Amino acid sequence: MHADDQVDEGVSPELAWFLRTAEDHRPVRIVPAVCDRCGGRVFCVLVDDVEGAAERVCAGCGDRAFVADSEEIWEDADPGEAGCPCGSEEFETAVAFSLADDGSVRWVTVGLRCRQDGAAGVYADWKIDYGPTDHLFGMV
């Protein structure tokens, strides 16, 4: 891990480690997904790994939320439901924000950890080429 990495409370060590090793050598901030409606932490996730977009659906209450700036391109996206090789479609979800020297977000990486077998993977990532970017940290 980079000396300047930040892992917010609620991200499992396994998913944090996986996301950190998937990133470049820039510092990252890793933020867990938490349902705004019920506080749930298990999600089904729709991803478009070509366009770089994701939407999460709470397994507890069904509340939906876009990840980071995904809503802006969702109309052009062709999402599919994320699935683990074990067959499960429910995940712990976290986002790694790769940070530039000035602290702005340069990359968004969506990591999922299967609730059934613990397998972790990167399901979507995309470049951020605008600023300011602080609002993205609250959109996980």
Rank of each mutant, 00 (worst) to 15 (best):
V67Q: 05
E89R: 15
D49P: 08
H2Y: 01
L46H: 12
L19C: 02
H25M: 07
R106V: 05
A16L: 02
S98D: 12
S88N: 15
V31S: 04
A77P: 05
F18N: 09
D129N: 13
D48K: 06
D101W: 04
V57Y: 09
A120D: 08
A124H: 05
A59D: 15
W126D: 05
A119V: 08
D4W: 10
V11M: 06
G40M: 03
R64K: 15
R26I: 00
P132V: 00
G10M: 05
P32Q: 03
D129A: 12
E14W: 07
D4F: 08
V105R: 10
V7E: 04
V31W: 04
V50I: 13
A33N: 10
F137H: 12
F97N: 01
V67G: 04
W126C: 01
E51L: 14
A53P: 06
C35D: 09
L46C: 00
V47R: 11
D101V: 12
V105M: 07
E9T: 13
C61P: 09
G60H: 14
E51Q: 14
G103I: 08
V34S: 07
W107E: 14
C61N: 10
G39M: 10
E71F: 08
E75M: 07
D4R: 13
D63Y: 13
E51M: 13
D63E: 15
G103L: 05
A94R: 02
E14C: 00
E51K: 14
C61I: 10
V11Y: 06
D78P: 00
E9D: 15
L136T: 02
D24I: 01
A16Q: 02
A94I: 07
Y123G: 00
A3V: 09
V110T: 13
F66T: 06
A120V: 04
R26W: 04
S98V: 09
D8G: 00
Q6C: 03
S70K: 08
M139P: 00
R56A: 13
H2A: 00
M1P: 12
E55T: 11
V122Q: 01
E92D: 14
C86R: 05
G103P: 05
C35A: 03
D5N: 13
R29V: 01
L19W: 09
Q6E: 15
H135T: 03
V105Q: 07
D129M: 08
P27Q: 10
R56G: 08
V122R: 01
G87H: 11
S70Q: 11
H2N: 12
L15N: 02
G39A: 06
G60L: 12
C114I: 01
C61A: 05
